[in-house]
Simulated assay, not measured.
Amino acid sequence: MKKYISAILLMASTAFYAQQTNDESQQWSAGRPDGHAPISVMGDHMHGKGEWMFSYRYMYMNMDELKQGGEDASFDDALSDYMVTPTSMPMNMHMLGAMFAPSDKITLMAMFNYLSMEMDHITRMGGTFNTESSGLGDVQLALLYKFFNKNQQTLHGQVGLSIPTGSVTESDVTPASSPNETELPYPMQVGSGTFDPNLVLTYLGQNESISWGSQIRGIFRFGENDREYRYGNRYSLNNWFAIKANNWFSVSARLEGLIVGEIEGADPNLNPMMVITADTNNSGGTYINSGVGINTYISKGALKTLRLGFEFGYPLYQDLNGIQLKAKETVTFGTQYSF
C-alpha cells in the first residue's frame, strides 16, 4: 500500500511542477489518435461541457494451467489436496459505456457489462467436465473531476461506485450434483454482491508526437453479500505511452502493477475441500501485466470523432495466493464516439 501512496504523491508532484513551469496557453487535447489511453484503461479522459460519449468494448481473457505462489504447478499437485481442479477458463465480457459532461470540470460516467464464462475441470479419478455461467454484471457509476488542463498536461480524479446488479448465485450441473444444478465457485459468478466504492487519479501528458499517462486505482470492498463473503480489495497502477504515427493512427504500450486481496468470508453452499476455486485461500495475488495496442481516430467527415482501439495484453509476472489458474492472454477491442 505504501508504494501506491508514493505513486500518488509522485503523480501530484509531477503535475504541480509541470503546471508551474510550462506555458499555460497550451492545453492537453483529446482530438488525436493517442488522445485517449489504451482501450483497456477506463476513466482515462474527460469531456468538455455538454459533450457526450458512448463506447463499446469487448474483452477476451484466458486462464490456463496452474500456478502455486510464483511457481508453475501441475494438475496432480492440485489433485493431491482437492477432488477437482479447473484446467482452463476463458471469459468474454461486453461493456457498454456512456459519459456526459455537465461542465468543463465534471464528467459523469456509467458502465454496463455482460459476462460469459466457461471452466474445464479434471477430477482425481481422471474424469472431465465443463461448467458455464453468464449474465449481466455489476453496474459502474462514477464522477470525474478535472483539477487542471494546461501545458499539454491534465490531472483528474474519479469517485465511483459499483452497484451489485450481477448475480452471485450462478449454478450449473456437475458430476457430483447431476441431474441437479449446484452453485458454482467464486470465479464463475458474474457479480460481487456488494456496493464497492473506487477512487482513481489519472495524469496525462503529450507533446507533438507522443502521449503518456499514469493512473492509480483502488477498489474497496465493504460488508458481505448474500452468500456471506466479499471479494478482496484491488489496487492498480497503470502506466502507458503512445506514439502518434499520423493524424489518424497511433501505437501504444502499457505496464500495470496489480494487487488483489483474498476473498474474506465464505459461501456456506461451497465445499472448499472439493475444488480449488471453492477455497478462499486460493484467491488474490500480485501481478505485473503488459499490453501493446493500436488506436485510430477519425478527425473529419461523417464519422468525425469515432475511435477504434485494440490491445493485446499478457502477464509478465504473477505471484498467486494458494494454487490457482494462471492468467494468460487478454484481448480488448473497442470503439468510442463523442459528440
Rank of each mutant, 00 (worst) to 15 (best):
K3F: 14
K3V: 12
A7D: 11
A7K: 11
A7M: 08
L9E: 12
L10D: 06
M11E: 07
M11V: 13
A12G: 11
A12I: 12
S13L: 14
S13R: 02
T14S: 10
A15M: 10
F16Y: 10
F16G: 08
F16T: 14
F16P: 02
F16M: 11
F16A: 13
Y17F: 10
A18Y: 07
A18I: 13
T21C: 08
D23V: 13
D23K: 15
S25W: 12
Q26T: 10
Q27K: 14
Q27C: 01
Q27W: 01
W28M: 06
W28V: 04
S29K: 15
S29L: 11
S29C: 08
A30K: 09
G31I: 08
G31Q: 14
R32D: 05
R32M: 07
P33E: 10
D34Q: 11
D34V: 14
D34M: 10
D34T: 12
G35E: 07
H36Q: 15
H36I: 15
A37Y: 00
P38A: 11
I39D: 00
V41R: 00
D44C: 06
M46Q: 08
M46C: 02
H47T: 09
G50I: 11
G50C: 11
E51S: 10
W52D: 10
M53F: 07
F54S: 15
S55E: 14
R57Q: 15
R57C: 03
R57Y: 02
R57W: 05
Y58V: 05
Y60T: 05
Y60R: 13
Y60I: 01
M61A: 14
N62W: 05
N62F: 04
N62S: 09
M63D: 13
D64S: 12
E65F: 07
E65W: 03
L66H: 12
L66R: 01
K67F: 03
K67D: 00
Q68R: 12
Q68A: 13
Q68P: 01
G69K: 03
G70C: 04
D72T: 07
D72C: 03
D72W: 12
A73E: 09
F75A: 13
F75D: 06
D76Q: 12
D77Q: 08
D77N: 11
A78E: 04
A78S: 14
S80N: 09
S80V: 07
D81C: 05
Y82M: 09
M83S: 04
V84H: 01
V84F: 00
P86H: 02
T87W: 00
S88W: 02
M89Q: 05
M89P: 01
P90Q: 03
P90H: 04
M91Y: 00
M91P: 02
N92A: 09
